[in-house]
């Protein structure tokens, strides 16, 4: 892993300026984190990767004879060797993910999409099969895991189209997604996991199997940690009709305690089903999440 990291390139406030998820991912992965991920497996895969000068002793089958005829120079073709490992990105797109605090210049969903783009790029570079499952109370996107650069473009394209809305229904379509996972797989689950502590562990129980791994990234706005700054507010639920009038300064301390208890409780329950858990605040840089992902991936 590289020791030096350009943190500016991981700053979501900067990255938010980049509309193209392909570029964004390359900026993050190739620019800010060069070498932190395992290099591409080159070998006899079907996916052409690049040319390189022929070295003695190499199999002559790799020589591109057409290039030799044109340039009178021996060059070998290298192919991307695909793994039999799948990475499935699961993104919660419910209305609560659309929340954008006054301190943020982007919503939680935008942060999740940036993160997912980086994961997808890294996974693709490592030759993993790549899939995307986005849902709220309906399935918004379900791209089955496949390998190849076309799959990466499809993922980026799908990410562009995701918008927040609807209520959270974690169970909805879950079985459909899990049953579609081939062989060994890793689930990257990005959500705010609000109201999910009772059901989420049960859903991720498959992580106990040696074939699967899951990483739950809880994404919260700074407001959700600290409450907005105002003397009095009439809070209304984004995914419901309930309203509460209160003074945030008056309840802030108690709120923080209860929120932390909730996060801890969630983490414990997920670790009981061998699922990795990390809480991300949407004003943090992407590095923490990426390192967590690469750490897990490289263990495989």
């Amino acid at each position: 892993m590289a020791a030096s990291v350009d943190h500016q390139l991981l700053d979501p406030n900067h990255l938010n300026q980049i509309e193209d998820y392909s570029l964004l991912a390359r900026v993050v992965v190739d620019g800010a984190l060069p070498g932190i991920h395992r290099s591409l497996r080159q070998g006899r895969g079907s996916e052409f990767y690049q040319y390189r000068p022929y070295t003695r002793g190499e199999d002559l089958k790799l020589v591109d004879w057409k290039v030799f005829a044109k340039r009178d120079e021996l060059v070998s073709k290298t192919f991307q060797e695909s793994t039999n490992f799948s990475v499935c990105l699961v993104i919660d797109t419910s209305a609560s993910m659309g929340y954008q605090g006054e301190a943020s210049s982007y919503s939680k969903l935008r942060y999740a999409k940036m993160l997912a783009a980086c994961f997808a790029y890294i996974a693709h570079r490592q030759g993993d099969r790549l899939g995307l499952f986005a849902y709220s109370d309906v399935v918004k996107e379900w791209i089955r895991p496949r390998s190849g650069s076309g799959q990466l473009n499809r993922i980026f394209s799908a990410l562009r189209g995701l918008e927040s809305g609807g209520s959270t229904a974690h169970k909805f379509g879950w079985e459909q997604m899990v049953s579609g996972l081939p062989g060994r797989a890793m689930i990257i689950f990005i959500s705010d996991f609000l109201e999910a502590e009772d059901t989420l562990a049960e859903q991720l129980r498959f992580s106990l199997s040696s074939r699967y791994e899951s990483l739950c990234l809880q994404l919260l706005d700074p407001d959700e940690i600290d409450l907005p700054n105002a003397d009095s507010l009439r809070f209304a639920e984004l995914e419901g009709d309930r309203e509460v009038s209160t003074s945030p300064p008056a309840i802030r301390e108690k709120y923080k305690i209860e929120m932390n208890e909730f996060i801890e409780d969630l983490g414990k329950k997920l670790s009981s089903v061998s699922s990795e858990f990390e809480t991300l605040i949407s004003n943090q840089d992407l590095g923490c999440a990426l390192r967590r992902f690469l750490g897990m991936r490289n263990r495989k």
């Binding site: 929340y99 809070f235 639920e237 008056a250």
Partner: peptide, 23 residues
């Protein structure tokens, strides 16, 4: 001061009603 500002929030699970300060 009027307390009429409606504020949409992801979850009001841990938000308790409290006395609104009148200034």
């Amino acid at each position: 001061r009027r307390v009429t500002k409606k504020f949409y929030f992801p979850s009001i699970r841990f938000i308790r009603p409290s006395q609104i300060p009148r200034t």
